[in-house]
């Protein structure tokens, strides 16, 4: 070893030895909906290190506004499991009817929970989990999102091909409008509301005030979920039937690139290194996609992985 090389390597080795977690290793939480478990994945090693049991069917995962808890919705188990966002340790369990998709309003006041199998949209007080309002819908409320001012919640109604809006100030239904076949993912973007229609090949763009469709963006067969990149420049759409992940310019909604992600791409979370972590429902795997090269690595997880949440700041599990 030349002195020159030693000089370059030594500080690096010292840093590693003395401060084992000086830089993050990262933990990914993956909800295996059909094996009733949560996979704890080492983000650096790209390997599942352990599995924590859920109750029956965990689908979606969300971080509490104070950042202290992960909420894991378990539909068939009728409970929300609270877990530590660093270690995954179970903090507590709350009985909640059929929590399918769930999200906190941007102001952190409300937790809205869709009961897909019970035709209910429930609004809870985020702090106490006391129910404020139950909306009966027709039918099968799938995904939800909010207006940035937290005044309106938007819910896709899967089996009746509609989008519903709820006024969270008055706690009243606002409107219900046809949106397209089998709507799934919904997202607020630049003053519009976007809905992925799984029974079709497009994302519908609607007016949040009226629900009227303004435009349709073709993304691929079985358009299912929508995620905005952290820099808010790219909108990502997963197409369930086509087996593709598509990047769109968030401003113009023009397609930038189409990536082949077979195995039913579903939920996405974004890692600080620019990769996308995508659950592949029918493949028991997570794809770690490098959008630059289009190549993806795979991480083996459980049966029918659905929700995913990354904690890049956590030490290696």
């Amino acid at each position: 070893m030349t002195p020159w090389f030693r000089l370059r390597v030594l500080p690096f080795l010292l840093a590693t030895a003395l401060t084992p977690h000086a830089w993050a290793d990262g933990v990914a939480f993956v909800l295996n909906s059909k094996s009733a478990s949560v996979s704890i994945v080492d983000m650096t090693a790209r390997r599942e290190v352990r599995r924590i049991p859920a109750l029956r069917e965990p689908h979606h995962i969300v971080l509490s506004p104070d950042g202290k808890s992960l909420l894991i919705g378990d539909t068939a188990g009728n409970q929300i499991m609270f877990a530590d966002p660093v270690t995954g340790a179970v903090q507590r369990r709350a009985p909640v009817s059929d929590p399918y998709h769930l999200a906190f309003s941007p102001n952190g006041k409300y937790l809205v929970v869709n009961g897909l199998a019970r035709n209910q949209v429930d609004v809870y007080d985020a702090a106490t989990l006391a129910m404020i309002k139950r909306f009966h819908v027709d039918s099968t409320p799938s995904h939800l999102d909010f207006s940035p001012d937290s005044k309106t919640a938007f819910v896709t109604l899967q089996d009746t091909d509609k989008l519903a809006a709820f006024d969270l100030t008055a706690m009243t239904p606002k409107w219900v409008e046809p949106i397209g076949p089998t709507p799934a993912g919904v997202i607020w973007l630049n003053g519009k509301i976007l809905v992925a229609n799984m029974g079709s090949d497009h994302v519908a763009v609607a007016d949040p005030a009226t629900g009227k469709i303004l435009d349709r963006i073709v993304t691929g067969k079985g358009a299912h979920t929508l995620f905005l990149a952290p820099d808010k420049k790219i909108l990502w759409v997963n197409n369930r039937a086509a087996g593709t992940t598509v990047s769109l310019d968030a401003q113009t909604l023009k397609i930038i690139r189409v990536y082949n992600i077979p195995g039913g791409p579903d939920d996405i979370d974004f890692a600080p290194d620019g990769t996308l972590w995508i659950t592949r429902r029918f493949a028991e795997k997570v794809a770690v996609l490098d959008p630059g090269t289009g190549a993806f690595e795979t991480v083996q997880v459980g049966r029918s992985p659905h929700g995913i949440w990354l904690n890049p700041k956590a030490p290696a599990p």
């Binding site: 089998t182 029974g199 083996q300």
Partner: peptide
């Protein structure tokens, strides 16, 4: 560990059932 039966079921679903459901408007 991969479960070969899960993967087979996933393959059947992706290759036959989804195209069928999509074509017949039954994606729900």
């Amino acid at each position: 560990m991969e479960d070969p039966f899960d993967l087979l079921a996933g393959w059947v679903h992706e290759t036959f059932l989804i195209p069928l459901l999509y074509a017949t408007g039954l994606m729900k």
